[in-house]
C-alpha cells in the first residue's frame, strides 16, 4: 500500500515538473521586450477603473455553503457504498434514511430560495 502512494507521490512530482519545465524553456526561448503599455491590465482598451478584485454576488457564497454540506455527506457515504455487499438489510435502510434526510435538506434549501439565481 505504501508503494502505491509512493507512485502517486512520484507522479505528482513528474506531473508538476513537466509543465513547469516546458514553461521555463519557453521563457528562455521567448523574447523579453516589456513596456508599461504592454503590461497594463486589459479592460477593453480603456484605462483601468478601480481595483480588479471587485465585489461579487452573495449568491456565490450560498452555493458554496450548500455544496460544503453535500460534499461532506457524500464522503461519509463512500465507506457505506464500499461495504454495501456485506451490509445487513438494517444497515442498508439506515443508509437510505441518511440519503432521504439529505434529499430533505436539498428540498429545504430549495424552498428557502437558496438555489435561486437572482
Amino acid at each position: 500500500m505504501l508503494t502505491a502512494w509512493l507512485y502517486v507521490g512520484i507522479f505528482l512530482v513528474v506531473a508538476v515538473l513537466l509543465p513547469a519545465v516546458a514553461i521555463a524553456l519557453a521563457g528562455i526561448l521567448a523574447p523579453k521586450k516589456s513596456n508599461p503599455i504592454k503590461t497594463s491590465v486589459y479592460e477593453c482598451g480603456i484605462e483601468v477603473v478601480g481595483p480588479a478584485r471587485v465585489q461579487i454576488k452573495a449568491q456565490y457564497y450560498i452555493y458554496a455553503m450548500v455544496f460544503l454540506v453535500f460534499d461532506v455527506e457524500m464522503v461519509l457515504l463512500f465507506p457505506w457504498a464500499v461495504a454495501f455487499k456485506q451490509l445487513p438489510l438494517f444497515a442498508v435502510f439506515e443508509g437510505i434514511l441518511f440519503l432521504l434526510i439529505l434529499l430533505g435538506g436539498l428540498f429545504y434549501a430549495w424552498r428557502k430560495g437558496a438555489l435561486e439565481w437572482f
Binding site: 491590465v41 486589459y42 479592460e43 480588479a52 478584485r53 471587485v54 461579487i56 449568491q59 456565490y60 452555493y63 458554496a64 455544496f67 460534499d71
Partner: peptide, 19 residues
C-alpha cells in the same frame, strides 16, 4: 491576474465546478 474579467470568470468557474 489583477483583471476584472479574469476575476469574474474565476468566481463563476468556482461556483460552477463545485456545484
Amino acid at each position: 491576474s489583477n483583471n476584472k474579467y479574469a476575476f469574474l470568470g474565476a468566481s463563476r468557474a468556482v461556483a460552477q465546478l463545485i456545484s
